[in-house]
């Protein structure tokens, strides 16, 4: 549905460098990355709001590189809803009908359906200033989907909402996407959102796309140190490979297979490390002992820093387990992980 080839954009301090990405019809595609990576810029370029210095964009098979925004069939939903403050909810939702020839009957049906699905029936005559954040965002979605655009761009649609609304609207998004033909392209910071909604993800950094793939691929098989760090693979080490073993300083890790050419890093997710007081009798090939160097409260779980042979590993543990094991700093513990949990790149 969307094809971006060799895109170069310059907008003041923001740049996009050689962006290449293809998004399939009716896909739910998620863009992630740190602040300033260029995610919103890319969104606005696809929408036609920012001019392109070099490159090619096609939407729905048509060359859209120089098309004005109103001719692209690309809707946009912003983080701060951007409802027209001088129009009622109903007028906001129906705004696009003026410019898109849709038969009256079909429009009416669609309006009813959207209003029902998003539970907006009681708000139709209100002005946007009197609505809550969640209600605002739902109106914003209804407005964009009313004209059934080819593509819907969502720029962090949930980050301005209270937690309790986020889950609701996340489910709404899922449902809306399922029920329509529109391709969704969403920017988010929240991993949980990405994992629950995305078909595929792209990670951006400093104006470039670092990696594109399914959520599984991104979170478990990052292809660069940046992506690995970004997705929270906290145990990232530069290693020397020797047969099926990897060496970090004085530690030898059993990888289980010969690594392909060019690999120089291994990584393992903190969640995949198992902690115990005694050495575990298990099939996990990699078992080590170490000293707890730090216990960090992360709200709903704890992060445990263990030093073993001058290398620090970070593991996660629930609060309950922490108390059951009576862990404390300075203690000696055993930690282990499967070689299948290792990611090499």
């Amino acid at each position: 549905m969307i094809e971006v080839k060799e895109l170069f954009v310059e907008l003041g301090d923001f740049r996009l460098d050689n962006i290449n990405v293809a998004i399939n019809k009716n896909e739910f595609f998620v863009l992630m990355g740190p602040t300033g990576a260029g995610k919103t810029v890319l969104l606005e370029v696809i929408a036609g709001l920012i001019p392109v210095r070099k490159g090619y964009i096609s939407i729905g098979g048509k060359n859209a590189t120089t098309l004005p925004p109103e001719k692209r069939g690309v809707g946009i939903v912003y983080q701060d809803y951007c409802l027209f403050p001088h129009m009622t909810v109903k007028e906001n939702i129906n705004f696009g009908l003026h410019y898109n020839k849709i038969k009256k009957g079909i429009a009416k049906d669609r309006f009813k359906r959207l209003v029902q699905n998003l539970n907006l029936g009681h708000l139709l005559n209100r002005l946007p200033t009197n609505l809550s954040g969640g209600e605002n965002q739902r109106v914003s979605l209804a407005r964009a989907l009313m004209i059934e655009p080819l593509v819907l761009l969502l720029d962090e649609p949930l980050s301005a909402l209270d937690h309790r609304f986020r889950e609701e609207i996340r489910e709404d998004l899922k449902k809306l996407h399922r029920d329509s033909d529109t391709t969704f392209l969403m920017v988010t910071h929240d991993f949980a959102e990405a994992i629950s909604l995305a078909d595929r993800v792209a990670v951006m950094n400093e104006g470039r796309i670092e990696q594109t793939g399914t959520t599984e691929e991104i979170f478990r098989k990052p292809c660069s140190t940046f992506v690995a760090d970004f997705v929270g693979m906290k145990n990232l080490f530069a290693v020397k490979f020797c047969g099926t073993e990897a060496r970090i300083n004085y530690l030898t890790i059993d990888v289980g297979y010969s690594p392909p050419e060019g690999c120089s890093y291994i990584a393992v997710r903190p969640e995949d490390i198992v902690l115990s007081l005694k050495k575990l009798d298990s099939s996990m090939r990699n078992a080590f002992s170490g000293t707890i160097k730090g216990l960090i409260d992360r709200g709903f779980y704890y992060e445990v820093w263990i030093e073993s042979a001058e290398t620090i590993f970070k593991a996660t543990i629930t609060k309950r387990s922490l108390f059951e094991l009576a862990l404390s700093e300075g203690m000696n513990v055993f930690f282990s992980f499967k070689s299948t949990a290792l990611h090499l790149f």
Partner: peptide, 27 residues
């Protein structure tokens, strides 16, 4: 007036002129 309002209007199919008269000017 946030330029984003104008962006949304254009994404819904309104030309720059139409956006100006229906959104920017009234606000």
């Amino acid at each position: 007036i946030s330029p984003r309002l104008e962006n949304v209007s254009r994404s819904l199919g309104a030309s720059m002129t139409s956006t100006f008269f229906r959104i920017t000017f009234p606000l």
